[in-house]
């Protein structure tokens, strides 16, 4: 089990694992970890993996997310030519190179960030999404480079850049190189600003550490999914440091909204439409319906 999964309450563990533990035919039924309702998997999926009973937002893969968000035509992947190397020959109880192989097997992705060029309601965009199941969505050199290449394409195409975060933070196995990705990704955004192109940051469960403390809060608009865990330091570290009980709902999206840290919370089922509206408003275009009618 990765260190990051260990940090999480068992009930938020990913769907695949939960299914494996129950001796139910693969993915046919699913128990909502929030309200315990037993859901038919196909129904859940039709509902964007949001529980129809309690609106709990289940974690989803980066591909699924991008697939639901983007128009089906005209998608191009950016940065898939960039792959990890184990520069430090990092080894704890396991080698970093072995961890990479495992993560690839588990997710069928070759790193924790996937970037696509495409469109939302025919509005051109570049969208990046973190794959949390790939080493806790940790940000190393590849994630940083793909992010930057995504920004570059947005600049070339003069279109907005959207990023869905889901990450435990920097990838320890790349040492200081991973810390520097915080500076690299944040610096890339200065170019988008200069070109007056919107950057919309969507924080999903969980967005922590080095990802949270770099580009994630630099959005022109910062959105969170309901109930997402978002913060700099993990709850366990804070508890060990301050030795006080944490307030209710601490570091959840609703808590952040209340404290003025984010602009809005958007239900996943509304996300595509909301993003399109925001983009048209920021870029002074007509409403989506009018654009589509034209």
């Amino acid at each position: 089990m990765s260190w990051f999964q260990k940090l999480l309450p068992p009930k938020i563990k990913r769907r695949g694992e939960a299914d494996a533990k129950k001796s139910v035919p693969d993915g046919l039924w699913h128990k909502c970890p929030s309200c315990q309702a037993v859901l038919y998997h196909a129904d859940l999926e039709k509902n964007f993996s949001v529980c129809p009973k309690c609106s709990h937002h289940h974690r989803i893969s980066a591909r699924t997310r991008l697939d639901w968000l983007l128009d089906s035509e005209g998608r191009f992947e950016i940065g898939s030519e960039v792959l990890s190397v184990d520069t430090l020959k990092f080894k704890d109880q396991k080698k970093y190179s072995d961890r990479l192989i495992e993560a690839k097997k588990k997710t069928d992705e070759d790193d924790a960030l996937i970037v696509l060029q495409g469109s939302i309601h025919a509005l051109p965009v570049v969208v990046a999404a973190f794959e949390f199941d790939f080493m806790g969505g940790s940000m190393g050199s590849v994630v940083g480079e793909r992010f930057v290449r995504g920004v570059q394409v947005a600049l070339e195409q003069q279109c907005p850049f959207v990023c869905y975060s889901a990450s435990g933070g920097a990838r320890m196995q790349e040492g200081l190189l991973s810390l520097m990705q915080m500076a690299k990704t944040s610096a890339a955004l200065t170019q988008l600003s200069e070109a007056r192109l919107p950057f919309i940051s969507v924080l999903t469960d969980p967005t922590m550490g080095g990802v949270s403390a770099s580009f994630a809060f630099l959005g022109d608009v910062v959105i969170a999914e309901p109930g997402a865990l978002i913060g700099f330091a993990g709850a366990r570290v804070i508890q060990q440091t301050v030795r006080e009980t944490l307030p209710d709902g601490f570091q959840r999206a609703e808590f952040l909204l209340e404290h003025g840290a984010i602009d809005m919370i958007v239900d996943r089922r509304e996300m595509r439409d909301q993003l399109a509206t925001l983009i048209t408003l920021l870029t002074k275009q007509d409403a989506v319906a009018k654009l589509e009618a034209a």
């Binding site: 030519e81 792959l83 190397v85 520069t87 940083g144 190189l177 990705q181 500076a183 690299k184």
Partner: peptide, 11 residues
């Protein structure tokens, strides 16, 4: 800043 990071590039 953009040069930070080590990775390989494939065709």
């Amino acid at each position: 800043l953009m040069s930070y990071g080590k990775f390989k590039e494939i065709e």
